[in-house]
């Protein structure tokens, strides 16, 4: 009896540890880096982190629903490329507000186009979605290259007012950066969508078991359009935050964001099997990824080794995720 008791206590302890592994890892990482490199906790570095995590956070929040819905989206890199060059080029001729709105609309349309092609072909598996969105990513990137003639556009070439983008890039509201405020608003909106709307529940059911969801009266095709459209919209928001911060937009600005977003979502604990997960978990995942890259930077690790670390953590996280749901 007592042996069983301790056994189950260990099991509960292990499952808590597994669930909050990311938080433990974040804490350990912060403690370790702060010990080795005191600059880590300096206000300058913390502000730096606050500005740094914006783009990846937006993109990963959007990807969360695609993954909860049981799909995957590799088209994000292409969407970011396209939105960045389209938006920055329209500031001069159209003014900043129309440019911003066109950018967000472009991203949403790209996302919706993914879902239309997936639905019309009847693709139901993650693998099919992966390859199709990869192909679309190539198409979106190529359109971005054709549109911009492969050149990088800079803020300083724009004479029209670009105050909104400058504020997003480097402005602050009190002690919070504007990009952080945008993050809080998007997180709140997406959390409400996830927890309090029928569509949010439908997305989770779709990810859990498509046939069961359909038989239960869930319109899974609508859910699929919604998750990809949200993914595209958030990618567009990420693109705008990104090029506002670096003040330039090149047609290859989004490279790597798709895998990093999947990495952040999975590390956060949303399962790739679909049906379970939360945007709050993604926030933790993104924090871990961004903190890790910041720590490695401070410790003087090369950018290339950081890619190795990301790949290793992604592989490990997928393996762990799989163990949990076996």
């Amino acid at each position: 009896m007592t042996v069983q008791g301790t056994n189950s206590a260990i099991r509960v302890g292990a499952s808590i540890l597994r669930d909050y592994l990311v938080l433990v890892m974040i804490a350990a990482l912060v403690a370790l880096t702060a010990l080795i490199e005191p600059k880590f906790l300096s206000p300058e570095n913390l502000t730096n982190i606050m500005f740094q995590f914006g783009p990846l956070m937006m993109v990963a929040l959007g990807t969360t629903f695609v993954i909860i819905g049981g799909f995957i989206d590799l088209s994000i890199a292409g969407t970011i490329n396209l939105v960045a060059v389209v938006t920055i080029s329209l500031i001069q001729p159209m003014g900043q507000v129309p440019a911003l709105l066109t950018g967000l609309a472009t991203g949403t349309v790209c996302g919706a186009l993914n879902s239309v092609l997936i639905l019309s072909s009847g693709a139901l598996t993650q693998a099919e979605a992966l390859f199709m969105t990869f192909g679309l990513s190539t198409v979106y990137s190529a359109i971005a290259l054709l549109y911009s003639h492969g050149s990088t556009m800079h803020f300083w070439d724009i004479t029209a007012s670009k105050s909104i983008f400058q504020a997003i890039g480097s402005g602050s509201l009190g002690f919070l950066s504007w990009s952080f405020v945008i993050f809080l608003i998007s997180l709140a909106a997406l959390w409400v969508f996830q927890e309090m709307t029928a569509e949010g529940r439908a997305v989770r059911l779709t990810g859990g078991n498509k046939t069961a969801a359909r038989l239960a009266g869930v319109r899974i095709s609508r859910s699929i359009v919604v998750i990809y459209a949200i993914g595209g919209f958030m990618a567009a928001l990420g693109a705008i935050v990104l090029f506002s911060r670096v003040t330039t937009a090149s047609p290859v600005i989004g490279v790597g964001y798709e895998t990093n977003a999947i990495l952040a979502v999975v590390v956060g604990g949303t399962t790739l099997k679909g049906g379970k997960g939360s945007v709050l978990r993604t926030v933790m995942g993104v924090l871990l990824v961004v903190l890790m890259s910041n720590c490695l930077n401070l410790l003087g690790v090369s950018t290339y080794l950081q890619v190795v670390a990301e790949g290793a953590i992604l592989t490990f996280a997928i393996w762990l995720d799989n163990r949990k749901h076996m």
């Binding site: 999947i262 990301e310 790949g311 992604l314 592989t315 997928i318 393996w319």
Partner: peptide, 11 residues
């Protein structure tokens, strides 16, 4: 497909 994508990123 996802695990080999991760290994590919690492490599």
């Amino acid at each position: 497909f996802i695990i080999t994508l991760g290994i590919g990123l690492l490599l």
